[in-house]
């Protein structure tokens, strides 16, 4: 129960740097949704969480999805709830956006755009990297 998990937060536990790397397009596979749900769960543990969107993962953040026709949940709206879960570090790789003809204006949430070298450094300083 989340009520229970909430009681567990705020302990004296060590804060680690967790990075969740999203590299899959939404809807075609379950990875994007699963990755997002794991991030929401991880928020209960008060860790230093970053989310990275690279390769096809940048497609997860596209504005204006309408999933009625394929009868699945439009979880792109859920990225906008991350702020309320205190997950504010969202990074997108510039090369991945460029390769897909996308810009920040096409995305549903505010992100920090990093070049590949900056992204590499950010990854290198994490304690845990979880990839989807």
């Amino acid at each position: 129960m989340s009520d229970m998990m909430d009681d567990m937060e705020g302990g004296e536990g060590v804060v680690k740097k967790f990075m969740f790397v999203n590299r899959k397009a939404p809807h075609g596979t379950i990875y994007a949704l699963e990755g997002l749900e794991v991030v929401l769960v991880s928020a209960a543990f008060d860790q230093d969480v970053s989310m990275v969107f690279a390769d096809d993962g940048v497609y997860e953040l596209i504005k204006g999805m309408n999933t009625k026709g394929i009868e699945v949940k439009d979880f792109s709206k859920t990225y906008r709830a991350l702020d309320g879960y205190d997950i504010e570090k969202l990074y997108v790789e510039k090369a991945s956006m460029d390769a897909r003809g996308l810009t920040e204006a096409d995305l549903i949430v505010d992100v920090t755009v990093l070049d590949s070298a900056e992204m590499a450094n950010l990854m290198a300083e994490q304690d845990v990297v979880i990839s989807y």
Binding site: L40, A43, A44, F75, K77, T78, A81, G84
Partner: peptide, 15 residues
């Protein structure tokens, strides 16, 4: 309706 999830308690409280 807005976020397509049911919020965790502390998120609900804050909202």
């Amino acid at each position: 309706d807005e976020y397509q999830i049911a919020p965790a308690v502390r998120v609900l409280t804050k909202a």
